[in-house]
Amino acid sequence: MSEVIVITSGKGGVGKTTTSANLGAALASLGKSVVLIDADIGLRNLDVVMGLENRIVYHLVDVVEGYCRLNQALIKDKRFDNLCLLPAAQTKDKTAVTPDQMRQLCKELKAEFDFVLVDSPAGIEQGFKNAIAGADTAIIVATPEVSSVRDADRIIGLLEAESMPPPRLICNRIRPAMVRRGDMLGISDILDILAIELLGVVPDDESIVVSTNRGEPAALSQGSRAGVAFRNIARRVLGEDVPFMNLDETNGFLGRLKRMFGSTR
């Protein structure tokens, strides 16, 4: 059955676009048909991270305004036939689209793809409301910082108010050494407050920066630790029970995390 998933965070720059690109690529590599929607109208990014910028002719706003057909605006990925991108407009702003139009768009795409991933803009205003409008479920991205967790909590509350099912959490940019020193929130600290299901933990990894600049999602390169994390996340999205990556060889606390979490919620 098809699913529309919005990737959102409240706070900016925590890795929504990185997650959208990598989860999309990983799901496609596992044989699923995937379309990525860049809902960050006016701050288009996903095309660059996917390395597809030079192929854009039409964009999301063209589609909802009827300037082109939906299929004309979909850009096929370089690597996978079963992966597409619907880019954002760079010259418009968030008010160029309404939640109703997004709902309709997601409905049409859902009929054609296994997964529709919506890359949400930061914030809780119109752009966020558009991004969640057509979504069945949400993935929250948070970094181990107090402000990011606070914003994630706010988003979870807003999703609850929209009667969406409880979102799942990706903790991005974890640095085990800092957590061990007590200089960074640990996963259990974050889960303590947010109390939602953990979908994955992505380490802070230089390979993300390299792959982002190259337009090659890290999930497709074998050597990247973050890439492994995103591939695991994709398999969990498909319902597989994948053990959590052991980021910290010294005590393996992430390995125990899932059991801990499963027993308390």
Binding site: R150, D153, R154, I156, G157, E160, I193, A195
Partner: peptide, 24 residues
């Protein structure tokens, strides 16, 4: 329920929360 960031309850009386009250 749990009160999450940005949620606020004001009440003329006592308030009992069956959940957490998160930062914010």
């Amino acid at each position: 329920r749990t009160l999450r960031s940005g949620q606020r309850v004001r009440f003329n009386g006592n308030v009992v929360v069956l959940g957490d009250v998160n930062p914010g």
